[in-house]
Amino acid sequence: MIEARRLAIGYKNNILHESLDFELSCGEVVCLMGLNGAGKSTLIKTLCGFIKPLGGSLKIDGEIGVVLTDKGNAGGLTVYEMVSLGRYKHTGYFGTLRENDHKVIQESLKAVGIEGKADRYMSQISDGERQKAFIAKALAQECPIIILDEPTAFLDVTSRIETMALLRKLAYNQGKAVLISTHDLDNAINFADRLWLLSKERQLVSGAPSSLVENGTVEEFFKLRDAGTL
């Protein structure tokens, strides 16, 4: 679904990476890991189209639904209304929802398991539920690719596991390509099909969690962090 060759990312006077190669296929969960400053957010922003790539090629097959760390100002919307914004491209000039839109919204709410909270205000639900609501919004967009920027950052342990398990289920059941940036190594190893390890020195290293653990790449990656050289 996503294929990058010699992709250069960063900002005009601050190039972070000059040549990244990676691909993301449908039905798989990939966790993007890296230290602060390694360029995770920049990579995510580039893939989402918020900033332009500086060079190389980036092919994206289909649209992307995003879950970001922005808090927004949606506290006065109900969960249902917020998720319905995912239908933006499918509705007419005034954003009036048709029968099919309502169906998609209800299915999305069901898929993340918060259909019971549909009439609550966004400001009344917990952090974990809010994250699920945003995932439901991304589902309502009906995009083949979902990219999430640190979706578990502000969640407690239970909600972290729940969220990761939910994303894995969505990838398998609905064939979505799911890319998650995270700092949470344990859950990344448990739930991802592949890890992308991003660092200044080694660019992007991709592989199955088990093989990256076995051949010592993960250990090296995090040891280097302990030594403070990354």
């Binding site: 989402c48 189209g49 918020f50 992307i64 639904g65 995003v66 970001l68 922005d70 808090k71 927004g72 100002n73 949606a74 006065g76 919307l77 917020m82 914004l85 995912g86 933006y88 491209k89 509705t91 000039y93 005034f94 954003g95 967009q141």
Partner: peptide
């Protein structure tokens, strides 16, 4: 009145709104 739809999307912030197609 014609700006109601983008105004609603902007409640989520500009990044979300642009991803939604605004």
């Amino acid at each position: 009145v014609l700006l109601i739809k983008p105004l609603n999307a902007l409640l989520l912030g500009e990044s979300y709104a642009s991803n939604l197609g605004v």
